[in-house]
Amino acid sequence: MPTPTKGPRLGGSPAHERLMLANLATALFQHGKIQTTETKAKRLRPLAEQLITKAKRGDLAARRRVLAVVRDKDVVYALFDQIAPRYANRNGGYTRIVKTGPRKGDAAPMAIIELVEELAVAAPAKSTRKATARKAAQQDKVEALAPEEQPPSSAAEAAAADQDAEAPESVSGDTAAAREDADEADTSKS
């Protein structure tokens, strides 16, 4: 078994370590911050930053590389469409590790690893502003394209306008008057 370059292995085998780090990265991108041991947080930081850098590229090859590590498609979507655009002007340092006290059961040193900018604060504010602006622009277009119609000034004019309309035709081409004549003829035969 090859010796890892960054300290002792977290699990029993390379595959177990790789899967453990992938699960930690998935949880980090899903929740914005997670609490784990200091060792795991220090091993997770370079992987998470590489994934964010790939997500900033945004092309199909980068998406496939990220999907090879993070198996949850919803988390990959959030990474590419919500998390990566926030770091467009930043060249690294997307995560922060804050050390907390020892764990109660075995006194293992614990830490919180989190994304530098908050997830919940940045995303909804932009989408609501854009949505309202988009709705207002759509309403302006509809008003500009709609012909100006004047409502009839009296009930007599409204009734005259309804009488001028043609009787509806059925699919076979019969008019309403022709259907009434046929119904009267059927009732008189019986």
Rank of each mutant, 00 (worst) to 15 (best):
D183V: 15
E148S: 10
G92P: 06
G173E: 07
T53Q: 11
A84H: 07
P124C: 02
E38R: 15
D106W: 01
P168A: 12
R43K: 14
V70T: 03
I34P: 08
R43H: 09
G58P: 05
E180Q: 11
P102I: 00
I52Y: 07
P168C: 02
A68V: 07
E180K: 07
A62T: 08
E169Y: 06
G7P: 04
L44A: 07
A146N: 03
H16R: 13
P14N: 09
P109G: 02
P124Y: 01
P152D: 02
R64E: 13
L44C: 08
H31I: 05
L28D: 08
V75D: 06
T5A: 14
E149R: 15
A159Y: 09
A41C: 04
K130I: 06
S188M: 06
A55I: 04
Q50V: 11
L79F: 09
G101C: 04
Q35P: 01
G7N: 03
A62Y: 04
V116Q: 10
R86I: 12
E143P: 01
E149F: 12
K40L: 02
F29E: 01
E117T: 15
A27C: 09
A144K: 11
V70S: 05
Y87R: 03
R86M: 10
A108T: 13
P151A: 13
P124H: 02
V69I: 14
E143Q: 08
R96H: 09
A185R: 10
A107D: 02
D162Y: 01
A156W: 00
N91R: 15
V171G: 10
P124Q: 03
A41V: 03
I112C: 04
M1Y: 11
S13Q: 09
S153P: 03
E180D: 12
I113P: 04
A178W: 03
Q163D: 12
A178E: 14
I113D: 05
N89S: 15
P14D: 08
I97P: 05
K189I: 11
K40P: 03
N89E: 15
A131Q: 13
P124S: 06
K130G: 06
G58C: 06
K54V: 00
T26V: 03
A48I: 04
T53W: 02
D181F: 07
R134S: 14
K141F: 02
T187F: 00
R9S: 08
A137E: 07
L10C: 06
K99L: 10
P14I: 00
A156T: 12
K99C: 01
P85T: 06
T37K: 05
Q150A: 12
L119V: 11
